Structure formats: C-alpha cells, structure tokens
Computed example of a mutant assay.
Amino acid sequence: MSVAAQTQGTAQAQPSARRPRTNAEAARYGVLRRLAPALKHDMVVHLQAVAMLAEVLTARLERGTPSPADLEASIGKMNRLARDAVMTSLKVAAWISPSDDETTRLRDGVDDCVALLRSSFNFRGCTLANEVPEADFEVSRVALRHLVAASLLSMADAAGKPSDLVVLAEISPGFAVLTVRCTPRSDDDGAVDAIAAEPGYRALDWNDVQALALSESIELLRTQDQIVMRIPRMVATTPLQIAPV
C-alpha cells in the first residue's frame, strides 16, 4: 500500500476515534453555557458590593473627613468584600478550567450544582433538593459537577413542565450510586400558573449525559423519571494549595 493510501486511511479513521471526546467536549460546553448566567451572577455580586461601598466612602470623603475609626472600618469592610470577590472568581474559574484530579465530598459537589441551578429552576416552576447523605466520601469534582448539572438540566428540559427534582445517593466503601429523579407536577398541584422558561442555550438531552459519563468511565442508567450513575471513590493526588489572602 502506498504512503498516500496509508495517510488517507489514517485520516479517515481519526474522526471516528475522536468522536467520543468531541461529543463530551460539546456536552461540557453546553453545560457551561446553561450555567453561564448563574456563574456570571456569582462573579459580579461581590464586585458590585465593593463598588457600592467605594461610592459611599467617596461621598463621605467629599462631605468632609470621616473619623479615623470610621475610615478604618470602611476600608476593612471593603478589603473583606474584595477577598470574597477573589475567592468567588476562583470558584467560577474552576468550572471553566478545572483540575482533573481535584476531589470533593459527594454532598458538597452536589450542593455546588444545586446552588447554581436553583434560581433558574425556580423561574421554570421547578424545585431542587439535595438529599445526598453527609459522608466523607470523595469523588472527582469535574465528573460530578458536569454529570449532575447535565442530568438535572436534561431531565428538566425533557419534562417541559414544572417538576420536582431531587438528588439522592447510596454510599458504599468503594463507590456511590447517585440518583437524579424528576417528578413532573400535575395541574392539581397548583403549578398550572407556573411558566417553564425556555433555556438560554440549547436544551441538553440524554446523549449529552451519556457522552460525559463515557468520557469519565462512569456507569449510567436511565429510566423514565430518573438517571442513576455509579461514581467511584477518588483519592486526591493534587498537592494542597494555599488560599489567597
């Protein structure tokens, strides 16, 4: 076989070899686009507080020199708000550029997703609940965040009506079985007036969740009203880092 023919055969084989990774990257991008409004809000809320405090302090200085104690208190408060803004910005950046071997406690990782999605889900007439038990069970932060967020979004999108969503887990020594359950509410539940908002980006579906699970080697099962995933315990390998002060 000629070199040209071998090259052509390799070029034809490469797209199919890359397809699982490409699908997972598209799914991650879809998740981040859907989370973008909440991430943007978390990033700017502390910065807005710093700006408002600076304006108040500027106005007081223009009216006259405040007492040293008042000036020190205002500067101290501004410093605390600025530190909060830095920490929040770092947390948002971790969603965009995460460390692959970073771990999180299972319930804490689910809380990250639920906290980000709760406001937007409320506008859609949906409720979110985290019923994962407290336990010192560490999992991959990247895998958990993307899979839980994608599962919640895809099930709410598929329901297309106000629903109650809950995340549960059964934990064993080596792995956790995490369940994301969606129960659409009937009109009799008083949800008839709730309006299910259209997503700000494309709807996420089962293919997105599957692609993410495949990329993380996580077993996945879906029924009509729930997604079940088997997440292994993960041991952190990244060295401890000092938080900014």
Rank of each mutant, 00 (worst) to 15 (best):
S16Q: 15
T88N: 07
A150L: 03
A69H: 10
G76Q: 14
F137M: 06
D205L: 01
M78K: 05
W206N: 05
P37Y: 08
P15A: 04
V44H: 08
K40S: 10
A194H: 11
L204M: 11
L81V: 12
I96V: 11
L168F: 15
D188H: 15
A26Y: 03
M87E: 12
S215L: 01
A27C: 09
I195T: 10
I75N: 09
E102F: 08
H46I: 01
R181D: 14
R33E: 08
A24L: 03
F121C: 12
F175Y: 14
M229W: 09
A36D: 05
V235C: 04
A159T: 05
A213V: 06
K161E: 10
R19L: 13
Q241E: 12
K40G: 07
S172W: 07
Y201A: 14
D136L: 10
R18Y: 10
A158L: 07
V209F: 01
L165G: 06
R181G: 07
L117K: 09
L152K: 08
N207K: 11
W95E: 02
G64D: 00
D225R: 06
G190N: 07
I195V: 14
Q226A: 11
F137Y: 09
R80F: 08
N122D: 12
K91V: 08
L165K: 07
V45K: 12
R185Y: 02
L71D: 08
R185F: 07
L128C: 04
S217N: 13
A13K: 14
G174K: 13
P184A: 13
N122K: 12
D164I: 11
T104K: 09
P232K: 05
F175K: 15
R124T: 02
L106R: 06
L152P: 02
Q12H: 15
A211N: 00
A150Y: 02
D70T: 13
T127D: 14
